[in-house]
């Protein structure tokens, strides 16, 4: 459902993303791993149509992101890093706004879509609070609710469990796992155990290039007996 073809992004002389190619099928949960600054977020921003690639493209659900970004944006639910939201709005107001932008017509359809997202992400107790007064965990859930409100076939999640406590992390993971059956999911993280817990594929990116694209088992088999973080270190050594 996602075909990423030779994505390049340069900032001045620096190549932040340098020819990244991979594909994601329905039912995949792809773990996107790499040191900070390796180009994970930049790649995701190009797939979601927020940044224009310097070269290459991504085809998402049959639409080329450089040719028809709006069609791509319709298919994707995107949780940006640190889940930005309009702080002065209440959770409900915010989700109604998203529903409207997502093309839900009429108050009933909007309410139903927002209600479903609120239930799924357990936001009921804070639905009438303004977002700026919420704790980090709740803010992250608002970001989640926003991303899955239109039940998209593709989810792109940038560090979805960052800053959450262990219980919240578990909850978010089971949420992702539960939804992934009929969706394609890309999630970036630097928590290796998370990849083992929910992903069925791993891509490791280092200095803007893909250095591994395999299943978690294959990754583990690279150095039998070694811990995942040791394997990760070996693969991304050039980045340190």
């Amino acid at each position: 459902m996602i075909e990423v073809k030779g994505l390049v992004k340069t900032y001045g002389a620096k190549r932040a993303v340098d020819g990244v190619t991979f594909s994601v099928r329905r039912g995949d949960i792809l773990g996107f791993l790499g040191p900070n600054g390796a180009g994970k977020s930049t790649t995701m921003k190009m797939i979601t149509g927020f940044l224009r690639p310097t070269a290459g493209t991504a085809v998402v659900g049959g639409h080329d992101v450089t040719a028809d970004p709006v069609a791509v944006k319709r298919k994707i639910g995107y949780l940006p890093e640190s889940a930005p939201a309009y702080g002065e709005m209440t959770v409900e107001e915010f989700l109604f706004f998203i529903a409207e932008c997502r093309g839900f017509k009429g108050p009933d359809a909007k309410r139903a879509a927002a209600e479903r997202a609120i239930q799924l992400t357990h936001l009921v107790p804070v639905r009438r609070q303004t977002i700026e007064t919420l704790s980090k965990g709740y803010k992250q859930r608002v970001g989640f609710a926003q991303a899955m409100l239109h039940d998209p076939p593709i989810l792109v999640l940038d560090e979805p469990t960052d800053g959450l406590d262990p219980n919240q992390k578990n909850e978010v993971r089971s949420l992702i796992k539960g939804m992934a059956v009929e969706k394609a999911v890309i999630l970036s993280t630097h928590i290796l155990e998370e990849v083992e817990a929910i992903c069925n594929r791993v891509i490791i990116i280092s200095q803007g290039r893909v250095v591994a694209d395999e299943t978690p088992e294959q990754l583990r088999a690279r150095q039998p007996g070694a811990r995942l973080d040791e394997i990760f270190r070996t693969l991304t050594l050039s980045d340190v």
Partner: peptide, 13 residues
């Protein structure tokens, strides 16, 4: 606040 990223990943030109 970073909401520009949210706004421009919604299906809006």
């Amino acid at each position: 606040s970073g909401t520009v990223e949210l706004l421009f990943t919604l299906p809006i030109t």
